[in-house]
């Protein structure tokens, strides 16, 4: 194979032209990608619909959230803070926030503090942590968004946190607290279940799998299936799931003292268990696991034949009594010590 310089240089120039053109095409696509601004289309649409106050769209809107980060959701959700856009005809992303926001305006707290998502992102998929953005906690959708109240509030201290109170109660009644303790990042009285906060956020489907079919994710699990418990009570399932979601959300540092401050407002939550100021008579065990193992657990030894009084300190259920406080005061520094 002899080397023909003329032929070779000609071929080289051709190839070089080809590669350079390919590179140019790539750069052109990259430029188009890089310069596209999906949010501008939303803002233009907002103005076109006659919803905007001015003809000039606001550009990227950034607010600081109460966890010290920033979010830019209101760049597209232009109506979120307005009361006048609550018309059925106006769809997302322009509609007003449906339950009135009160003091919880985006300017004060941002959106992600309650709704999750990636506040710094500006395209639909990423901001809402949709498919393909693995590893990011998904947005909290409607019934579950109430979980976020627990990031600052002690369940029961404010109207609107009833779901969390009900959830806490279910958590105790169904015996979740006995295995999945909430004390100081602790482990349940029977040493069984992992601490739910340590497991991190789980989707609705994952939560249901864990409740109905515990062995599916954790083959060694001794947890009973709660499928029969929730049969015909989908609302209880939602309430409990919301509560469990709430446990796994990090508390907002700015609000961490709110729990302590609001202790006085807690009568609602406490009275659920301490009826008439008495012991935990309001918590009938509904957990089949406990009921079936009564003998094995020697409940009688502590409770006596008939009454629920005189429980000894080391009874696992009594150990779960402390979690009962924590069911509402989770993450509250004052109560962890």
């Amino acid at each position: 194979m002899s080397f023909d310089p003329r032929h070779d240089s000609r071929r080289l120039f051709e190839l070089l032209l080809l590669v350079a053109s390919v590179l140019f095409a790539g750069l052109a696509i990259a430029a188009a990608q890089g310069l596209s601004r999906p949010w501008k289309a939303f803002q233009a649409q907002f103005v076109a619909l006659g919803l905007g106050k001015s003809e000039v769209p606001p550009g990227i809107v950034e607010v600081s959230t109460c966890d010290g980060d920033v979010d830019r959701c209101t760049t597209c959700h232009l109506g979120a803070a307005r009361l006048d856009l609550n018309v059925a005809a106006i769809g997302h992303p322009f509609r007003s926030h449906r339950p009135a926001l009160g003091s919880h305006t985006p300017e004060r707290m941002g959106c992600t503090a309650c709704h999750g998502g990636v506040g710094r992102a500006l395209d639909v998929d990423r901001a809402h942590a949709l498919a393909g953005t693995a590893g990011v906690d998904p947005l909290l959708k409607t019934p579950f968004v109430l979980a976020s109240c627990g990031r600052c509030h002690v369940p029961g201290d404010r109207p609107g946190t009833e779901t969390l109170v009900q959830g806490a109660l279910l958590y105790l009644q169904l015996g979740c607290a006995i295995c999945h303790s909430l004390t100081a990042g602790g482990i349940g009285a029977w040493d069984d279940g992992p601490e739910l906060r340590a497991l991190g956020r789980r989707s609705k489907v994952e939560l249901e799998t864990s409740l109905f079919e515990p062995a599916a994710d954790f083959p060694e699990s001794t947890m009973p299936s709660y499928e029969p418990t929730f049969e015909g009570h989908p609302e209880e399932l939602t309430v409990l799931s919301t509560y469990v979601q709430a446990l796994t959300l990090t508390r907002l540092p700015a609000c961490a003292t709110a729990a302590a401050r609001d202790l006085g407002a807690l009568s609602v939550a406490c009275s659920r268990c301490h009826l008439d100021g008495g012991p935990a008579a309001g918590v009938p065990h509904r957990c089949s696991y406990i009921l079936e193992r009564k003998a094995e657990l020697r409940c009688r030894g502590c409770h006596g034949a008939a009454t629920g009084k005189n429980a000894a300190q080391d009874c696992p259920v009594v150990a779960a009594h402390r979690p009962a406080c924590v069911a509402c005061h989770w993450g509250s520094e004052t109560l962890r010590r």
Partner: peptide, 28 residues
Amino acid sequence: TVAAWPHLVLRVSLVLLGTTALVLFVAL
């Protein structure tokens, strides 16, 4: 042997541009 211009210099340019193009398309 052959002359470095254009046989070597153009090949080098080709590789530099080609590599950039490759990474660029992956990045797209």
